[in-house]
Write a protein that binds this DNA or RNA. Structure first.
Length: 755
DNA sequence: ATCCCTCGAGTTCA
DNA sequence: CTCGAGGGAT
């Protein structure tokens, strides 16, 4: 058996030109983290065109768009993604905006029946649609309940009631009713913003157009799951087959496909069902428990799942879980687990959220489907940070309706059968090429090698030798030793740094990615090509591309598959990003350990890029004030500070920054919007034992109000909330003259529930 | 010194 | 979605 080490280890994922599926955003109350860059700045290159050029481009676009429209409407076979279509359309409109004489009666913008600029309009959820924490083992349910008891400081014998209901495997939908009438329906989308599928939702029998009953809140957002029964799924697939159309892999895909039909008539012909189980914005709550809400929903005319129960102990929860599991095959629709929720809505509110899921709910999933296949090879990809990432190449196998041919192997130790904190496969069992392996899809998504079938191991199978040289540049690849713990890092990294082409490409991909510069049309493939051809090798090259192209003989327009339009689209996308928010800019640099969150922390603290840069350079001396300032930022510790310092020390980076800053405008970050609360922007320290709330609750509450919560008192502290038994911190507060109050004082200041 | 949580950086397929 | 590691609390 041979190992195929690819020369070019970059990713092999296809770039469709469409932006990748939305990654989850952060669902903290402040949603700025997931907001796209503000308004798109003017398309600069349009106003540089002469009328003659504009006319030519306008005409070309007109033909192209008309053709896409025809394909879309008449053949139902579009050849471009919606995103690409939109770019064309926007450019077209921009041209007309600049040269109104182009706007004749022949213009596509003047004709009716033109395709809407996007398939579905977006709807912003007033209350984000969150995901649930999940677990597989019974113990995880116990931990979940324990965690809640601890958080609430609930005594062991104090009653705590949960609801338990099947977790439907469909699509989440949010329905908005105003004065009892259905006004809109939106898919979950990324949780913050979904697609408007109102017309389609109206065709679902289980979704009432008007709520029943008398005491109906003015605003009621009902959430639940759209799904297809097994019977209807089979019928739809029969019809698809008869019509020679591709079959749906599973009921969930079929339901998704049906709901996202542009023509509601098609949706109407698919017998979709809907279970209600949650809510978003509600002007007046009809009940104060989860179970009560379910009953209320039924009263309003919704279908709620019959298997919803109230449970008052872990034993009851598990019993109901196993009951549902036993019944699973007979339900007639797909479920993938059981959801537990704290019944009391007051307690739900107290429990609040951890990152992006509620602390008061857990999805207890059924064991994931497994499959057996053969490990045909191990490939090594090189990441942006130089990490050597092993990928299992598998003999293709179907797991849960999807064909899987790759899976991650995590790192060297995982292959060797040495477990870190996470699970190892099995004590002392390593993974070898040619092995028969068991895989599943973790959380039904990411394929993972679970175990090796040792009985089937080939006699000549040898332990896999993890490369100690970078497959891309040949540099040494090492596992650094963590100076604190004296332990080796789990990942082996290429030491090639700037000379490693794989790292350079990955850094570029990061730079243009959605949460960084977000340059549309700069996908994996295009970066790879441009890099290869020497057109774009460093971030700053992106912004001089158009200029160089204009001078060069080897023009982009002459490349195969490139027309004037694709080139002007790309340039327009680049121009649109010449101005960028500070936090995005910092994130885009790809400094190790600086992700979205830390980038925002730095942006908020320094306000301008120059300030950050100055501070980082001054912090080269670990004894300096600047160094202390860095580590004083909450969330930035010694390791992260050091990495930032190192980044700005590097001469190549200096050069890159100078070149880049000559090309782009980094918008200073304004001081965080002062929330309308008495503690907004203040730094609060809680000390002593708190009697009316737990520390965690206090912290969550203060942060909700826009305050920063610190652990120790300094001269930057604004308020110290001291309970009984407060000691040194109280003394410090006196020393610095910081305002001190007790819990009652705190509540008097901010109100009982923190609103 | 050790826990717990959050974050970053990697990952699949359609 | 997962892991490992950093940061902060204990």
């Amino acid at each position: 058996m041979e190992v195929d080490l690819p020369n070019v280890p970059g990713q092999s994922i296809l770039c469709t030109g469409e932006s990748p599926p939305e990654r989850y955003g952060s669902f903290n109350p402040n949603l700025d983290s997931i907001m796209p860059a503000k308004n798109i700045p003017s398309l600069k290159s349009v106003d540089e065109l002469t009328l003659k050029e504009a006319r030519a481009e306008h005409e070309a676009l007109s033909t192209e768009i008309a053709e896409h429209d025809r394909r879309y409407y008449e053949e139902d076979a579009p050849t471009v993604s919606d995103a690409e279509y939109d770019t064309l359309r926007k450019r077209y409109e921009a041209l007309e905006g600049m040269f109104p004489e182009l706007k004749t009666s022949e213009s596509l913008t003047q004709k009716v029946g033109s395709r809407a600029s996007e398939k579905f309009a977006k709807i912003r959820h007033r209350v984000p649609m969150l995901s649930l924490a999940n677990g597989f083992a019974d113990e995880e349910v116990e931990e979940f309940v324990e965690r809640i008891r601890r958080f609430l400081q609930w005594k062991a014998d104090a009653p705590l009631v949960f609801t338990a209901e099947p977790k439907i495997d469909g699509l989440s939908l949010s329905l908005r009713y105003e004065k009892g009438k259905l006004v809109s329906a939106a898919t979950r989308g990324d949780g913050a913003e979904g697609e408007d599928v109102t017309a389609n939702a109206r065709t679902v029998d289980d979704i009432p157009h008007v709520l029943k009953g008398s005491d109906i809140p003015d605003v009621f957002e009902v959430r639940g799951e759209v799904y297809l029964s097994h019977k209807d799924f089979a019928a739809i697939n029969e019809r698809q087959e008869a019509a020679g159309k591709p079959l749906f892999a599973n009921p969930r895909n079929a339901a998704a496909g049906s709901l996202r039909q542009l023509d509601p008539k098609i949706t109407a012909s698919r017998p979709l069902c809907f279970f209600a189980y949650a809510w978003g914005e509600v002007s007046k709550m009809p009940a104060d428990t989860q179970y009560g809400m379910m009953e209320a929903l039924r009263g309003f005319g919704f279908t709620v799942n019959k298997l919803t129960r109230r449970c008052s102990s872990i034993a009851e929860m598990l019993e109901h879980y196993h009951e549902i599991e036993t019944d699973r095959a007979n339900l007639g629709y797909d479920i993938d687990g059981v959801v537990y929720k704290v019944d009391d809505l007051g307690l739900q509110q107290r429990l609040g959220f951890v990152s992006r899921s509620p602390r008061w709910a857990l999805a207890h999933k059924f064991p994931a489907q497994k499959a057996v296949t053969v490990l045909e090879g191990i490939e090594i990809n090189v990441g942006r940070t130089g990490s050597l990432n092993p990928i299992a190449r598998l003999r293709p196998v179907t797991v849960g309706g999807v064909v899987v041919s790759n899976a991650t192997l995590h790192n060297e130790d995982y292959i060797k059968g040495i477990g870190g904190n996470g699970e190892k496969i099995r004590e002392g069992v390593d993974i070898r090429i040619g092995d028969t392996v068991i895989i599943n899809r973790a959380g039904d998504v990411i394929p993972k090698v679970l175990d090796v079938v040792l009985e089937k191991r080939l006699d000549d199978a040898k332990p896999y030798e993890f490369p100690t040289q970078c497959p891309a540049c040949g540099s040494h690849a090492v596992r650094e030793v963590n100076p604190r713990t004296g332990k080796e890092d789990a990942v082996r990294r290429c030491t090639g740094g700037l000379i490693c082409p794989a790292q350079a490409r990955e850094r570029l991909k990061h730079f243009v990615s959605r949460n960084a510069f977000d340059i549309e049309g700069m996908g994996e493939q295009r970066i790879d090509e441009f890099y290869e051809e020497g057109l774009v090798q460093r971030p700053q090259d992106i912004f001089t591309l158009a200029e160089r192209n204009a001078r060069s003989l080897k023009r982009l327009e002459n490349r195969e598959g490139w027309g004037a339009t694709s080139v002007s689209n790309l340039f327009a996308a680049i121009e649109a990003r010449r101005s960028i928010a500070l936090n995005r800019f910092i994130f885009a640099l790809g400094i190790p350990h600086i992700g979205e969150t830390s980038a925002r922390l730095l942006a908020r603290h320094f306000h301008t890029f120059d300030a950050l840069r100055e501070a980082a350079k001054a912090a080269a001396d670990p004894e300096s004030e600047a160094h202390a300032e860095l580590t004083a930022i909450g969330g930035i510790g010694p390791v992260v500070a050091e990495t930032v310092v190192e980044f700005f020390k590097e001469e190549h980076n200096e050069e890159m920054l100078d070149a880049l800053l000559a090309q782009v405008n980094v918008e200073p970050m304004e001081a965080p919007a002062t929330l309308n609360s008495p503690v907004a922007g203040k730094t609060v320290v809680f000390t002593g034992s708190l009697e009316q709330m737990t520390r965690e609750e206090a912290k969550a509450m203060a942060e909700r109000l826009g305050a920063k919560v610190a652990g120790s008192v300094s001269k930057k502290t604004d308020i110290v909330v001291a309970g009984p038994g407060a000691g040194s911190k109280l003394a410090k507060a006196a020393e610095f003259g910081v305002q001190v109050m007790d819990e009652d004082g705190w509540f008097a200041l901010v109100g009982r529930n923190g609103s």
